[in-house]
Protein backbone atom coordinates (compact mmCIF):
# COMPACT_ATOMS: atom_id res chain seq x y z
CA UNK A 1 0.00 0.00 0.00
CA UNK A 2 0.93 3.59 -0.48
CA UNK A 3 2.68 5.15 2.53
CA UNK A 4 1.26 8.45 1.42
CA UNK A 5 -2.17 7.57 2.78
CA UNK A 6 -1.11 5.69 5.87
CA UNK A 7 -2.57 8.39 8.13
CA UNK A 8 -6.00 7.63 6.63
CA UNK A 9 -5.63 3.98 7.60
CA UNK A 10 -4.49 5.01 11.05
CA UNK A 11 -7.34 7.49 11.64
CA UNK A 12 -9.97 4.89 10.71
CA UNK A 13 -8.28 2.16 12.75
CA UNK A 14 -8.23 4.45 15.80
CA UNK A 15 -11.84 5.54 15.16
CA UNK A 16 -10.76 9.17 15.01
CA UNK A 17 -13.57 10.62 12.99
CA UNK A 18 -12.38 14.21 12.80
CA UNK A 19 -8.89 13.22 11.72
CA UNK A 20 -10.29 10.86 9.09
CA UNK A 21 -12.65 13.44 7.63
CA UNK A 22 -9.87 16.03 7.51
CA UNK A 23 -7.43 13.62 5.87
CA UNK A 24 -9.99 12.58 3.25
CA UNK A 25 -10.95 16.17 2.51
CA UNK A 26 -7.29 17.07 2.02
CA UNK A 27 -6.74 14.04 -0.21
CA UNK A 28 -9.76 14.88 -2.36
CA UNK A 29 -8.78 18.54 -2.66
CA UNK A 30 -5.37 17.52 -3.98
CA UNK A 31 -7.20 16.12 -7.05
CA UNK A 32 -5.96 12.54 -7.00
CA UNK A 33 -5.44 10.49 -10.16
CA UNK A 34 -7.54 7.34 -10.68
CA UNK A 35 -4.64 5.32 -9.32
CA UNK A 36 -4.27 7.56 -6.28
CA UNK A 37 -8.02 7.40 -5.65
CA UNK A 38 -7.73 3.62 -5.61
CA UNK A 39 -4.87 3.97 -3.10
CA UNK A 40 -7.06 6.11 -0.85
CA UNK A 41 -9.82 3.50 -1.00
CA UNK A 42 -7.25 0.81 -0.21
CA UNK A 43 -6.07 2.86 2.76
CA UNK A 44 -9.65 2.85 4.07
CA UNK A 45 -9.92 -0.89 3.44
CA UNK A 46 -6.80 -1.45 5.49
CA UNK A 47 -8.13 0.79 8.24
CA UNK A 48 -11.28 -1.29 8.42
CA UNK A 49 -9.20 -4.45 8.41
CA UNK A 50 -7.32 -3.11 11.45
CA UNK A 51 -10.67 -2.43 13.12
CA UNK A 52 -11.62 -6.07 12.45
CA UNK A 53 -8.32 -7.27 13.92
CA UNK A 54 -8.77 -5.11 17.02
CA UNK A 55 -12.24 -6.59 17.40
CA UNK A 56 -10.85 -10.10 17.26
CA UNK A 57 -8.19 -9.19 19.77
CA UNK A 58 -10.93 -8.11 22.18
CA UNK A 59 -9.88 -4.46 22.04
CA UNK A 60 -12.95 -3.31 20.10
CA UNK A 61 -16.55 -4.41 20.63
CA UNK A 62 -19.56 -4.53 18.30
CA UNK A 63 -20.47 -0.91 19.09
CA UNK A 64 -17.04 0.08 17.75
CA UNK A 65 -17.67 -1.84 14.53
CA UNK A 66 -20.92 0.03 14.04
CA UNK A 67 -19.21 3.35 14.63
CA UNK A 68 -16.36 2.41 12.28
CA UNK A 69 -18.86 1.51 9.55
CA UNK A 70 -20.63 4.78 10.12
CA UNK A 71 -17.57 6.99 9.81
CA UNK A 72 -16.35 4.99 6.82
CA UNK A 73 -19.70 5.53 5.10
CA UNK A 74 -19.26 9.29 5.59
CA UNK A 75 -15.71 8.95 4.30
CA UNK A 76 -16.75 7.13 1.13
CA UNK A 77 -19.26 9.88 0.41
CA UNK A 78 -16.40 12.38 0.51
CA UNK A 79 -14.43 10.21 -1.87
CA UNK A 80 -17.27 9.65 -4.33
CA UNK A 81 -16.33 12.55 -6.67
CA UNK A 82 -12.82 11.11 -7.22
CA UNK A 83 -13.95 7.62 -8.05
CA UNK A 84 -14.52 7.25 -11.78
CA UNK A 85 -17.41 5.56 -13.54
CA UNK A 86 -15.56 2.27 -13.42
CA UNK A 87 -15.61 2.37 -9.64
CA UNK A 88 -13.01 0.67 -7.52
CA UNK A 89 -11.77 -2.85 -8.10
CA UNK A 90 -13.67 -5.64 -6.34
CA UNK A 91 -12.25 -8.79 -4.82
CA UNK A 92 -15.40 -10.89 -4.89
CA UNK A 93 -19.19 -11.00 -4.94
CA UNK A 94 -21.59 -11.67 -2.09
CA UNK A 95 -25.32 -12.30 -2.17
CA UNK A 96 -26.81 -11.94 1.28
CA UNK A 97 -30.15 -11.79 3.05
CA UNK A 98 -31.81 -12.47 6.39
CA UNK A 99 -33.07 -16.04 6.63
CA UNK A 100 -36.65 -16.76 5.58
CA UNK A 101 -38.97 -15.74 8.41
CA UNK A 102 -36.41 -13.54 10.16
CA UNK A 103 -37.09 -9.82 10.14
CA UNK A 104 -33.81 -8.74 11.74
CA UNK A 105 -30.89 -7.12 10.01
CA UNK A 106 -28.65 -5.16 12.37
CA UNK A 107 -25.94 -7.82 12.37
CA UNK A 108 -26.31 -8.35 8.64
CA UNK A 109 -25.86 -4.64 8.02
CA UNK A 110 -22.66 -4.50 10.09
CA UNK A 111 -21.33 -7.47 8.13
CA UNK A 112 -22.26 -5.83 4.81
CA UNK A 113 -20.51 -2.60 5.74
CA UNK A 114 -17.36 -4.52 6.60
CA UNK A 115 -17.56 -6.66 3.47
CA UNK A 116 -17.92 -3.58 1.29
CA UNK A 117 -15.01 -2.00 3.08
CA UNK A 118 -13.00 -5.15 2.38
CA UNK A 119 -13.70 -4.73 -1.34
CA UNK A 120 -16.62 -7.05 -1.98
CA UNK A 121 -19.50 -6.30 -4.31
CA UNK A 122 -22.56 -6.90 -2.15
CA UNK A 123 -26.09 -7.74 -3.26
CA UNK A 124 -28.36 -7.33 -0.26
CA UNK A 125 -31.75 -9.03 -0.54
CA UNK A 126 -33.08 -7.53 2.70
CA UNK A 127 -35.01 -9.28 5.48
CA UNK A 128 -37.18 -12.44 5.49
CA UNK A 129 -35.80 -13.57 2.12
CA UNK A 130 -37.54 -16.59 0.59
CA UNK A 131 -35.32 -19.43 -0.71
CA UNK A 132 -36.35 -18.81 -4.34
CA UNK A 133 -35.26 -15.16 -4.04
CA UNK A 134 -31.80 -16.36 -3.07
CA UNK A 135 -31.82 -18.79 -6.01
CA UNK A 136 -32.94 -16.11 -8.45
CA UNK A 137 -30.24 -13.67 -7.35
CA UNK A 138 -27.50 -16.29 -7.36
CA UNK A 139 -28.42 -17.21 -10.95
CA UNK A 140 -28.40 -13.55 -11.93
CA UNK A 141 -25.15 -12.30 -10.39
CA UNK A 142 -23.19 -15.55 -9.90
CA UNK A 143 -21.60 -14.65 -6.59
CA UNK A 144 -18.63 -16.29 -4.93
CA UNK A 145 -20.39 -16.36 -1.59
CA UNK A 146 -23.94 -16.60 -0.28
CA UNK A 147 -24.55 -15.25 3.21
CA UNK A 148 -27.61 -16.15 5.28
CA UNK A 149 -28.08 -14.10 8.41
CA UNK A 150 -30.34 -14.80 11.37
CA UNK A 151 -30.96 -13.47 14.85
CA UNK A 152 -33.78 -15.76 15.90
CA UNK A 153 -33.45 -19.48 16.49
CA UNK A 154 -36.25 -20.05 13.98
CA UNK A 155 -33.79 -19.04 11.24
CA UNK A 156 -31.65 -22.08 12.06
CA UNK A 157 -34.21 -24.22 10.25
CA UNK A 158 -34.92 -21.87 7.37
CA UNK A 159 -31.21 -21.42 6.63
CA UNK A 160 -31.31 -25.08 5.67
CA UNK A 161 -34.27 -24.39 3.36
CA UNK A 162 -32.20 -21.83 1.47
CA UNK A 163 -29.28 -24.23 1.09
CA UNK A 164 -31.59 -27.00 -0.12
CA UNK A 165 -33.11 -24.65 -2.69
CA UNK A 166 -29.61 -23.82 -3.95
CA UNK A 167 -28.89 -27.55 -4.21
CA UNK A 168 -32.09 -28.24 -6.12
CA UNK A 169 -31.31 -25.45 -8.54
CA UNK A 170 -27.86 -26.99 -9.11
CA UNK A 171 -26.14 -23.86 -7.72
CA UNK A 172 -24.81 -25.11 -4.42
CA UNK A 173 -21.43 -26.34 -5.69
CA UNK A 174 -20.67 -23.04 -7.39
CA UNK A 175 -20.77 -20.97 -4.19
CA UNK A 176 -19.52 -20.91 -0.63
CA UNK A 177 -22.29 -20.57 1.95
CA UNK A 178 -21.77 -18.72 5.21
CA UNK A 179 -24.41 -18.63 7.94
CA UNK A 180 -24.13 -15.83 10.47
CA UNK A 181 -25.77 -14.48 13.60
CA UNK A 182 -25.93 -15.01 17.33
CA UNK A 183 -27.53 -18.49 17.36
CA UNK A 184 -25.34 -20.23 14.72
CA UNK A 185 -22.83 -22.86 15.76
CA UNK A 186 -20.70 -25.57 14.27
CA UNK A 187 -23.47 -28.08 14.93
CA UNK A 188 -25.95 -25.91 13.07
CA UNK A 189 -23.48 -25.43 10.21
CA UNK A 190 -23.23 -29.20 9.80
CA UNK A 191 -26.96 -29.73 10.15
CA UNK A 192 -27.93 -27.23 7.45
CA UNK A 193 -24.95 -27.97 5.21
CA UNK A 194 -23.20 -24.58 5.17
CA UNK A 195 -19.47 -24.12 4.52
CA UNK A 196 -18.83 -21.83 7.48
CA UNK A 197 -20.53 -20.03 10.31
CA UNK A 198 -19.75 -16.86 12.17
CA UNK A 199 -21.25 -15.20 15.22
CA UNK A 200 -19.57 -11.89 14.45
CA UNK A 201 -18.95 -9.76 11.40
CA UNK A 202 -15.17 -9.56 11.73
CA UNK A 203 -14.41 -13.28 11.59
CA UNK A 204 -17.05 -13.67 8.88
CA UNK A 205 -15.25 -11.15 6.67
CA UNK A 206 -11.92 -12.86 7.31
CA UNK A 207 -13.33 -16.20 6.17
CA UNK A 208 -14.82 -14.65 3.02
CA UNK A 209 -11.50 -13.07 2.11
CA UNK A 210 -9.76 -16.42 2.49
CA UNK A 211 -12.28 -17.98 0.15
CA UNK A 212 -11.80 -15.49 -2.67
CA UNK A 213 -8.03 -15.42 -2.36
CA UNK A 214 -7.72 -19.19 -2.38
Amino acid sequence: MSVKYQHITEALAQLEEEALVQALKDAVEAGPSAEEAQDIVNACTMGMERVGDLFEEGEYFVGDLIYAADILKGGMELLAPCIGAGGVSKIGKLVIGSAPGDLHDIGKNIFIAMMEAAGFEVHDLGIDVAPDKFVEKVKEVQPDIVGISGLLTLSLDTMGDVINALKQAGLRDGVKVMIGGNPVSEAVQKRVGADAHSTNAATGVKQCKEWVVA
Binding site: L15, E17, V62, G63, I66, Y67, D70, I106
Partner: peptide, 11 residues
Amino acid sequence: GFRGVSVDIRR
Protein backbone atom coordinates in the same frame (compact mmCIF):
# COMPACT_ATOMS: atom_id res chain seq x y z
CA GLY B 1 -31.75 2.32 18.11
CA PHE B 2 -28.56 0.28 18.20
CA ARG B 3 -26.76 2.27 15.53
CA GLY B 4 -27.96 5.53 17.03
CA VAL B 5 -26.65 4.82 20.52
CA SER B 6 -23.41 3.34 19.17
CA VAL B 7 -22.54 6.58 17.39
CA ASP B 8 -24.08 8.90 20.02
CA ILE B 9 -21.74 7.67 22.73
CA ARG B 10 -18.95 9.20 20.64
CA ARG B 11 -20.55 12.24 19.07
